[in-house]
Design a protein around this nucleic acid. Structure first.
Lengths: 225, 225
DNA sequence: AGTTTTCATTAAGTTTTTTAATCCTTGCTT
DNA sequence: AAGCAAGGATTAAAAAACTTAATGAAAACT
């Protein structure tokens, strides 16, 4: 569940919004001042921050500047009653993902939040382990472990390819996509090389017959399990 | 310079917007139909797409779906005269960064674009090139180019190590840190391997005597230039 | 049915990375 | 300050990983 930090000094609005976001399956932590927000940020991880701008002491802009300096990749959205263009420009310049003016449309806000989270999370995706039939696959350890405890050590490319297959399991993984991601710019030549690795993986995974890497002619592969 | 794909069938609006974006130092390619946009996407790399929704044949939503399926991580913004909430929701659901309604404020649009580009580019972390004294280093191409045009091809590990050194240039890069990042949390054994690569890099960079990779006993290296 | 393109697998060739060996440097100990 | 251990530089060798080639089979196209 995604952790959201909400900075908002207005009691009733803050309450309503945090309840709404909670309902939408976000884990909201509500800070009523920038100072409180900073303390929370040091203790806990957040996936996204929603920042009100006008606050009694330190304002949302100032907090954002600190965030950018310290907490590098926490994405944030400004939320403010001020709809002046100059404020919006300042917001974006500070690296905000969006600048939403009150009154807000909660449904749209949630849609934006989800889009943003998908975007920022995308890169990090690699799970730390996958269960593939009777195997366990540990990408970071370059290891594939069979039910009976026997291990197969994988090479870097084998691991990269198997990871991609896992991320798309039971869906088509386009050749083009894998080539681009693992081999970099797709010179149509490494096609051959990729085939060799598919072949390796099939061999490694052959102890469980319910697993298969099936080819879709001209398109790519489907990793079924 | 950032490459932007603009999909817009309205002649005059498309012209004005692409001119404006050009002025703001973006490299804009203007497609007048979704089909044309698709062709361009196959040939060229873009950093961002701006998609009009209402188009004669294939519309912007449909194109976005294809993009999501095929072209991995090209971020896009919808641009439309339709301001219905249902359209906006659909836009975000498709993974758009934003949904902007006409008439647009060009200045705000550019601010958003810049913010989004920063956001998406950040993930890739590694700069696309570094100037090191009389050399240019292109991590993605695994190349080190000397002033006189002569090229040195680097291996994956050489590139990874040189990238890290660049990121910390004129500061101490801890051995431990490099080992962890490049070799994975590793046994003190690949220490030796790392030394070999340091040695390679020194040799490659020896044509410019103002560059040096200096050792800090027991700690790591400082890349000076 | 024949032809062309794509795919699977094995083997051979090449490149990259690691390990080893040797000598040098740094900083500590007495 | 001499001796010594631990860290570092460089080159060469061995090992591992990756790519290319070769062959035969399957799929799609005419």
């Amino acid at each position: 569940m995604k952790q959201i930090l909400l900075l908002e000094d207005d009691q009733s609005f803050g309450y309503i919004l945090s309840e709404y976001l909670n309902m939408q399956d976000f884990q909201v932590t509500w800070a009523k001042s920038a100072e409180e927000a900073l303390k929370l940020l040091q203790k806990q991880h957040f996936d996204l921050a929603i920042l009100d701008i006008m606050l009694p002491k330190m304002n949302g802009f100032e907090l954002a500047e600190i965030l950018k300096r310290e907490n590098e990749d926490l994405p944030f959205i400004f939320l403010s009653a001020r709809s002046l263009k100059i404020d919006k420009l300042k917001g974006f310049k500070l690296g905000a993902y969006d600048y939403v003016t009150k009154p807000i449309d909660e449904e749209l806000l949630v849609a934006k939040i989800r889009a943003l989270l998908t975007l920022t999370q995308k890169k990090v995706t690699t799970q730390s382990s996958y269960t593939i039939g009777k195997y366990d696959f540990f990408p970071a350890l370059l290891k594939l472990v069979f039910q009976d405890g026997s291990e197969i050590r994988l090479t870097a490319r084998e691991t990269a390819l198997l990871s991609m297959l896992c991320q798309h399991h039971n869906q088509l993984l386009l050749r083009k996509k894998a080539l681009k991601e693992i081999w970099g710019i797709q010179d149509e030549f490494s096609r051959k090389s990729m085939d060799v690795f598919i072949s390796h993986l099939r061999k490694y995974l052959s102890k469980d017959p319910s697993i298969s890497i099936e080819n879709v002619h001209g398109k790519g592969f489907i990793f079924k399990y």
